[in-house]
Amino acid sequence: MASSLMDGIARLGRRGLDIIASLGRAGVFLWGALVGAPRPSVGGPLLIQQIYRIGVLSLAIVIVSGLFIGMVLALQGYTILSDFGSESAIGQMIALTLLRELGPVVTALLFAGRAGSALTAEIGLMKATEQLSSMEMMGVDPLRRVMAPRLWAGFISMPVLALIFSVVGVWGGMLVGVEWLGVFEGSYWGNMQASVTFADDVLNGLVKSLVFGVACTWIAVYQGYDCVPTSAGISAATTRTVVFSSLMVLGLDFVLTAVMFGSF
């Protein structure tokens, strides 16, 4: 009895140590990838190529989602606000919701599903086909050559995507609110401008998306780098990327919201 209890505790301890060790590995990995980037003449084109694949190619899904979310917000907001006779506050509601929460969060979730999983699978496959090993044997550090451009591209792309998401959402909200439901356009923008502040809302949202960008890309690239190089291993790593990224985004969002908007 006592021994099985001890076994349980020991197992728990081992798991805890495993988690800490993998956190440590992930940290060392990030450090190794970001410190000492390749020469600009080599690194620049690599970075641009990755921004293209990670950022530009995610643009379509981000724009479409942003448009629909903005339109849904307008519809839902209108129904609720018209009960109080304050439909004109719809612009304020849409803008604040998008800038503070939905823009960064939904973009990050889409990013994890669209770009993050692709990153993990790609790097995992490069590992499985010994491309990373062969790079190492050629005297090229794959952390700097392969991981660093992808990490930076993710860090840069996420805020840009989130900004575009918010703008498209605000525009979609106007489409439904003003064009369809007949809210006066002047009060749509006027209420928005009166309540949205640049430093608190726009910049805080930007900070959020920056943080999410770092978290999602780090998780995706590291999961690919650390995966078991078999087909089952890559598929498990891809799943982990999406699950961990989503949970991490939502958890971080709570923390950041509490820090930024919590009234203490």
Binding site: L125, M126, T129, E130, Q131, S133, S134, M137, M138, G139
Partner: peptide, 17 residues
């Protein structure tokens, strides 16, 4: 730097796809 003076042929070839 030592590896720059080495070539290695992997079983799979390991070409960059």
């Amino acid at each position: 730097r030592l590896r720059e003076g080495m070539g290695m042929l992997f079983q799979s070839g390991a070409l960059f796809t």
